[in-house]
Amino acid sequence: MDTSLSQPKNLNLQLITYVCFTFVGYFIIGLSLSVLPIFINKSLGFSLLIAGMVISLQYISTFFLRAYSGKMIDGKGPKPAVLLSMIGFSFTGIFLILAYYFKFSPILSLTFLIITRLLTGCAEGLVGASPINWAIMALGEKHTAKIISYNGVACYGALAIGASLGIIIEQKFSLYGIGILSIILGIVGFLFAKTKENKTNISQKETQSFWKVLGKVAPFGVCLALGGIGFASISTFITLYYNHFHWNNGALCLSVFGGLFVAGRLVFSNVINNYGGIKVAIACLLVETIGLFIIAFATNAQMALIGAGVTGLGFSLIFPALGVMAIKSVSPSNQGSALAGYGLFIDISLGVAGPIIGSVADFFGMQFIFPFSAAMVFIGLGLAYFLKRKTNLNKIEE
């Protein structure tokens, strides 16, 4: 039944053929991530609050697509969700081109950007849990931690590479270049997904409603959401933060963040199995908090880069550490909904963080956004410690 386990030498290669869809999707997201806040603020003339709200629209639509995606995966398999996501990503490129073409009319351009962000969120919601579930169904549940880790490498590695490349493309080819590349990559991803065999759950017994599953994974998800605020502050506002202090190469922070994130996933890939998810989450949230404080008190661009790297290292294992526990809290027939529901919390985090951090910047000053983000992640650290104590008490009672 799980024939892939008899070919351990090919496991990593097989895994990559599934998580590559995550890479394509988040690479497209990353292409405009560093460009759009500046375009909205500097070219169209809207406030940082508006910029943050438009960027965060992506995560609102992602929120609503997660439930649909989870039920689709549990019922029809992950392939249909991946195919739809690739189509959605291609359409984001079309509306991004329209937004740039009509930049002489700020309101009209912003309208097209809103559509772009909503479509991006829909595509992200469909692809978010699909490659993970596809790989688990094809390669076996015993590889769940590794699959989630590799998927995260694909996700944040793609965001980091895409963000840096997006700056270069925008400088040479404007938003047209980013839009055209997004269309092409979405089509390529769609065609490759068409060649792969779909997988479905053999047993549909004990299938629960999405909202019941969501309740089971919520404690881990809330902790994840608080940890995600650090990533949100860097991904959405780091280029504006650098611009505020007249530093150069703000997008490099995203690359350093992504590089240390990937390194953390690869170097410490076994710590979750060795020490347990809660302990790993506590350690990671502590490191992430330290990294954000380094950025907050940075006096130059180089110090901020160090802080971004420490933050990326800290954030690297939070998702898989808590995600493995979330999956174990439900039956196999509900894993699609569990991962989709768990992923909702990072969407909530990124969706809420944009307007909130933008408001902090507008009303208190740009220099306060990273102390605020560090405080939020520190609260997540406290929650993780509470979950650890609760887990220990449950073990004693058993």
Rank of each mutant, 00 (worst) to 15 (best):
F293I: 13
I180H: 00
Y100F: 15
L49N: 05
I184D: 00
G291R: 14
L191N: 03
S105E: 09
M366A: 02
L393T: 15
S269G: 02
L350S: 14
V127F: 01
G166V: 11
Y101D: 12
Y342G: 02
S34P: 06
L15F: 08
N248Y: 08
T111P: 00
F378C: 10
V324M: 12
S203P: 04
I290G: 10
F231G: 06
L83H: 12
S329C: 08
L344C: 10
F210K: 00
N394E: 14
M325G: 11
F173V: 01
V19Q: 02
L317F: 08
S43E: 12
S329P: 08
L165P: 06
L313K: 12
I180S: 00
L96S: 09
L224Q: 06
Y385F: 14
V153K: 14
N198I: 02
G351D: 03
K76D: 09
I147F: 05
I167S: 01
N151T: 04
G227H: 01
L5D: 11
S47F: 05
W134P: 01
A145S: 14
V213P: 02
A81C: 08
S6H: 12
N133V: 07
L33M: 14
A81N: 07
A251F: 12
F363D: 00
R117G: 07
L113R: 02
S255E: 04
V267I: 14
Y26G: 11
S109G: 11
V360F: 02
T116I: 06
H244N: 13
F257H: 15
V310R: 09
R66N: 07
F363W: 05
F237T: 10
R389N: 06
T239C: 04
I348N: 06
T391H: 13
G189D: 01
D362A: 10
K172M: 03
N270V: 13
T289W: 12
M325I: 13
N274G: 06
I115E: 07
Q58Y: 11
A193Y: 11
I295W: 10
S130L: 01
I16W: 12
L119D: 03
H244W: 09
L175A: 00
I290L: 11
T62R: 10
G128T: 07
T299S: 14
I396Y: 04
L119K: 07
I107P: 06
I369G: 04
F91Q: 11
A304I: 08
G75L: 04
L15C: 08
L165H: 10
F319M: 05
V262C: 15
L84Q: 03
I184Y: 00
A145E: 13
K390D: 08
G128M: 09
F27V: 09
I178S: 01
W211S: 04
T92M: 15
V127I: 10
I356E: 01
L252I: 13
F63M: 15
L226A: 02
I60A: 05
V153S: 12
F293A: 15
L383A: 08
T22R: 05
H143N: 15
K328Y: 03
I16K: 05
S235K: 06
I346N: 11
I73R: 01
K9T: 09
